[in-house]
Amino acid sequence: MKNTNTLTNTTEASKYTMSKERFAEVVSTFKAFVKDKNNHPTYDKQYGTKYAGKLNIKHYIVYAILRQKDTAKTSHDPIKSGAYLDSIAMFRKWAKEENAINAWYLSGITAPFGITEDELKDALSAYFE
C-alpha cells in the first residue's frame, strides 16, 4: 500500500486516475450522505432498540481507500473487529477479482459516493497493490 497526499493526479506509484474535479465531487457527495440524519441509526423511543441506518463501516473504509489513507483508522479495534476484517477481506477479493460483486450490494456501497463500479475497482486495485 502506497500512501500519497492525494489521489487526484496520475503518478507512477499508482494506477488510480480520478481527476481533481471528480474526486472533489465524490467527497462532497459522501459528506452530504453522512450529514443526512436519515442515513444514521435510529432508536425506538419506547424500547430503546437501535435500528441500523444506511451508513456503515464499509462506507468509511471506501472513503479511506479513495483518499489512500490507512483503513485501520476507521475502526476502534481493527484487530478484533469482525465487521472491519470481513469488509477488508471482501474489498481485497474484489480488487483481485476473486469474487463477483452482487449488483444490489455494490449499489449500496457506490451510491453514497456517486461513483461507478469501474471507479471503485480502480481505487481498490490501486490500494491493494
Rank of each mutant, 00 (worst) to 15 (best):
N56Y: 02
T116L: 02
H76K: 07
T17N: 09
V62H: 12
V26S: 09
A123N: 04
A126Y: 04
G114M: 01
K93T: 13
K73W: 08
K69L: 10
S19R: 11
A13N: 10
L106M: 12
K73G: 08
S125N: 11
Q68S: 13
L55W: 04
T11D: 01
T11I: 06
F30S: 03
K93M: 05
I115Q: 03
I61L: 10
N9L: 14
K20E: 05
I79E: 09
E117M: 02
M90F: 06
T42N: 12
F30M: 04
F128P: 01
T17Y: 02
I101H: 06
N5I: 02
F91E: 07
S107A: 14
I79Y: 08
N9V: 09
A123W: 03
K58C: 04
G114S: 05
L7Y: 11
T74Q: 14
N56P: 01
K121D: 09
Y16F: 15
I101T: 09
D122T: 08
I65S: 13
M18F: 07
D36W: 03
D122R: 09
W104F: 11
E117C: 06
A95N: 06
D70R: 11
K50T: 01
R22K: 04
F23N: 06
S75A: 15
G108H: 06
K2W: 00
A52V: 07
L7C: 12
Y127P: 03
K45H: 13
Y84K: 05
T10C: 06
F128E: 07
T11Y: 10
A123P: 01
K20S: 12
V27W: 07
E119W: 01
K80N: 15
T74I: 05
W104T: 04
K20C: 00
K54D: 02
I88F: 08
Y47S: 15
P78Q: 04
I65K: 10
P78M: 01
S14V: 02
W104I: 10
N5R: 12
G114D: 03
E12C: 10
V27M: 15
Y16T: 01
E129K: 12
K96Y: 14
L85R: 06
A52D: 12
M1F: 05
F128W: 08
P78C: 05
S14I: 00
A89Q: 08
R92F: 01
V34K: 09
G48H: 01
I88P: 04
H76C: 10
G114Q: 08
E119D: 03
Y105A: 15
S14M: 00
L85W: 00
Y51E: 10
E117W: 06
A111C: 02
Q46A: 15
K93N: 14
E98R: 11
